[in-house]
Computed example of a mutant assay.
Amino acid sequence: MSAAAPGADVLRLRDIGFEAPRALLEAYGLQLVQVADGEVIPGSYWGEDEAGLIGTTVHARADTPVHSLLHEACHLLVMPPERRAAVHTDATDSVPEEDAACCLQILLAARLPGVGSARLMADMDAWGYTFRLGSTQAWFERDAEDARAFLAAIGMP
Protein backbone atom coordinates (compact mmCIF):
# COMPACT_ATOMS: atom_id res chain seq x y z
CA MET A 1 0.00 0.00 0.00
CA SER A 2 1.20 3.53 -0.57
CA ALA A 3 0.17 7.00 0.46
CA ALA A 4 -3.03 8.39 -0.99
CA ALA A 5 -3.08 9.48 -4.58
CA PRO A 6 -4.08 13.15 -4.70
CA GLY A 7 -7.78 13.48 -5.43
CA ALA A 8 -8.36 9.73 -5.53
CA ASP A 9 -12.09 9.12 -5.99
CA VAL A 10 -12.67 5.97 -3.98
CA LEU A 11 -15.58 4.41 -2.14
CA ARG A 12 -15.69 5.55 1.48
CA LEU A 13 -17.51 4.25 4.52
CA ARG A 14 -19.98 7.14 4.33
CA ASP A 15 -21.04 5.69 0.95
CA ILE A 16 -21.90 2.24 2.32
CA GLY A 17 -22.41 2.85 6.06
CA PHE A 18 -20.84 1.06 9.00
CA GLU A 19 -23.41 -1.71 9.55
CA ALA A 20 -22.27 -4.22 6.90
CA PRO A 21 -18.53 -3.70 7.49
CA ARG A 22 -19.08 -4.00 11.25
CA ALA A 23 -20.96 -7.29 10.81
CA LEU A 24 -18.29 -8.63 8.46
CA LEU A 25 -15.48 -7.84 10.88
CA GLU A 26 -17.43 -9.21 13.85
CA ALA A 27 -17.85 -12.52 12.00
CA TYR A 28 -14.04 -12.81 12.19
CA GLY A 29 -13.76 -11.72 15.82
CA LEU A 30 -12.76 -8.11 15.10
CA GLN A 31 -14.38 -4.88 16.25
CA LEU A 32 -15.03 -1.79 14.14
CA VAL A 33 -15.10 1.48 16.05
CA GLN A 34 -16.46 4.56 14.33
CA VAL A 35 -14.37 7.67 14.98
CA ALA A 36 -16.13 11.04 14.89
CA ASP A 37 -15.64 13.21 11.82
CA GLY A 38 -12.55 15.37 12.13
CA GLU A 39 -11.05 13.34 14.98
CA VAL A 40 -7.67 11.63 14.68
CA ILE A 41 -8.04 7.94 13.87
CA PRO A 42 -6.30 5.91 16.58
CA GLY A 43 -3.71 3.45 15.34
CA SER A 44 -3.62 4.80 11.77
CA TYR A 45 -0.31 3.98 10.08
CA TRP A 46 -0.94 6.28 7.11
CA GLY A 47 -2.71 9.06 9.04
CA GLU A 48 -5.40 11.37 7.68
CA ASP A 49 -8.51 9.30 6.85
CA GLU A 50 -6.84 5.88 6.82
CA ALA A 51 -8.10 3.08 9.10
CA GLY A 52 -6.19 2.32 12.27
CA LEU A 53 -5.43 -0.81 14.27
CA ILE A 54 -5.14 -1.36 17.99
CA GLY A 55 -5.36 -4.97 19.06
CA THR A 56 -8.40 -6.60 17.46
CA THR A 57 -10.09 -3.25 16.88
CA VAL A 58 -10.18 -1.39 13.59
CA HIS A 59 -10.83 2.36 13.86
CA ALA A 60 -12.34 4.34 10.99
CA ARG A 61 -14.25 7.50 10.17
CA ALA A 62 -17.00 8.07 7.65
CA ASP A 63 -14.39 9.43 5.21
CA THR A 64 -12.17 6.35 5.56
CA PRO A 65 -11.79 4.53 2.23
CA VAL A 66 -13.42 1.09 2.23
CA HIS A 67 -10.21 -0.42 0.84
CA SER A 68 -8.28 0.99 3.81
CA LEU A 69 -10.72 -0.49 6.32
CA LEU A 70 -10.55 -3.90 4.63
CA HIS A 71 -6.78 -3.80 4.20
CA GLU A 72 -6.09 -3.06 7.84
CA ALA A 73 -8.67 -5.60 9.04
CA CYS A 74 -7.15 -8.21 6.74
CA HIS A 75 -3.73 -7.60 8.27
CA LEU A 76 -5.23 -8.72 11.57
CA LEU A 77 -6.89 -11.73 9.97
CA VAL A 78 -3.74 -13.04 8.28
CA MET A 79 -1.46 -12.76 11.30
CA PRO A 80 -1.28 -15.44 13.97
CA PRO A 81 -3.99 -14.82 16.61
CA GLU A 82 -1.40 -14.53 19.39
CA ARG A 83 0.09 -11.43 17.66
CA ARG A 84 -3.23 -9.60 17.24
CA ALA A 85 -3.57 -8.40 20.84
CA ALA A 86 -0.19 -6.62 20.65
CA VAL A 87 -0.81 -4.83 17.34
CA HIS A 88 -0.75 -1.06 17.45
CA THR A 89 -0.62 0.90 14.20
CA ASP A 90 1.93 -1.17 12.25
CA ALA A 91 0.57 -4.62 11.46
CA THR A 92 3.49 -6.24 9.66
CA ASP A 93 6.69 -5.93 7.73
CA SER A 94 6.20 -9.36 6.16
CA VAL A 95 5.78 -9.47 2.38
CA PRO A 96 3.78 -12.73 2.51
CA GLU A 97 1.38 -11.23 5.06
CA GLU A 98 1.09 -8.01 3.05
CA ASP A 99 0.25 -9.95 -0.11
CA ALA A 100 -2.24 -12.14 1.76
CA ALA A 101 -3.92 -9.04 3.23
CA CYS A 102 -4.26 -7.53 -0.26
CA CYS A 103 -5.74 -10.74 -1.63
CA LEU A 104 -8.12 -11.22 1.28
CA GLN A 105 -9.41 -7.65 1.13
CA ILE A 106 -10.40 -8.24 -2.50
CA LEU A 107 -12.18 -11.47 -1.56
CA LEU A 108 -14.00 -9.91 1.40
CA ALA A 109 -15.11 -6.89 -0.66
CA ALA A 110 -17.50 -9.24 -2.47
CA ARG A 111 -19.32 -9.67 0.87
CA LEU A 112 -20.05 -5.97 1.27
CA PRO A 113 -23.19 -4.67 -0.44
CA GLY A 114 -22.37 -1.85 -2.82
CA VAL A 115 -18.68 -2.68 -2.95
CA GLY A 116 -17.62 -5.91 -4.67
CA SER A 117 -14.19 -7.08 -5.73
CA ALA A 118 -14.06 -5.19 -9.04
CA ARG A 119 -14.77 -1.82 -7.41
CA LEU A 120 -12.30 -2.50 -4.61
CA MET A 121 -9.53 -3.36 -7.10
CA ALA A 122 -10.24 -0.17 -9.05
CA ASP A 123 -10.08 1.82 -5.81
CA MET A 124 -6.80 0.15 -4.87
CA ASP A 125 -5.35 1.26 -8.22
CA ALA A 126 -6.71 4.79 -7.82
CA TRP A 127 -5.21 5.02 -4.34
CA GLY A 128 -1.76 3.98 -5.45
CA TYR A 129 -1.29 0.33 -4.58
CA THR A 130 1.41 -1.04 -6.87
CA PHE A 131 1.82 -4.53 -8.29
CA ARG A 132 4.34 -6.05 -10.70
CA LEU A 133 1.77 -6.59 -13.44
CA GLY A 134 0.64 -2.96 -13.41
CA SER A 135 -2.82 -3.26 -11.82
CA THR A 136 -4.51 -4.85 -8.86
CA GLN A 137 -6.75 -6.94 -11.09
CA ALA A 138 -3.84 -8.29 -13.14
CA TRP A 139 -2.01 -9.22 -9.94
CA PHE A 140 -5.10 -10.81 -8.39
CA GLU A 141 -5.91 -12.85 -11.50
CA ARG A 142 -2.39 -13.83 -12.62
CA ASP A 143 0.17 -13.34 -9.85
CA ALA A 144 -1.47 -13.93 -6.46
CA GLU A 145 -0.81 -17.68 -6.16
CA ASP A 146 1.47 -17.23 -3.16
CA ALA A 147 -1.11 -15.04 -1.42
CA ARG A 148 -3.87 -17.57 -2.09
CA ALA A 149 -1.66 -20.40 -0.78
CA PHE A 150 -0.92 -18.36 2.36
CA LEU A 151 -4.66 -17.81 2.91
CA ALA A 152 -5.44 -21.48 2.34
CA ALA A 153 -2.75 -22.50 4.82
CA ILE A 154 -4.39 -20.38 7.56
CA GLY A 155 -7.92 -21.44 6.64
CA MET A 156 -9.09 -18.17 5.14
CA PRO A 157 -11.30 -17.95 2.03
Rank of each mutant, 00 (worst) to 15 (best):
M79R: 14
S68W: 12
Y45W: 14
L69T: 04
R61Q: 11
G128I: 09
G128E: 09
T92E: 07
A110H: 05
G52M: 00
G47S: 12
V58L: 04
L112D: 05
A101G: 00
V58F: 00
V33F: 09
V33G: 01
A101C: 05
E97T: 01
Y129R: 11
H67G: 03
P96W: 03
S117G: 15
D125W: 05
I106R: 12
E39K: 14
G55I: 02
R83D: 14
P113Q: 04
P81V: 04
L107H: 13
G38H: 04
T57H: 06
P113R: 05
D125S: 07
L104R: 03
V35M: 06
S44H: 07
T130N: 13
S94A: 14
D123H: 09
L53R: 05
Y28N: 06
D90W: 15
E98I: 05
G38E: 11
P65V: 08
Y45N: 06
Q31H: 15
H59E: 00
E82K: 07
C103S: 10
L104Q: 04
S94G: 12
M79N: 02
R84W: 06
A100T: 08
V87I: 15
A62L: 11
V40A: 10
E98D: 13
A122M: 05
S44P: 05
E39Y: 15
H88Y: 14
Y129S: 15
H88S: 14
D37C: 07
V33N: 11
P81A: 10
A36H: 11
D125P: 06
D49T: 13
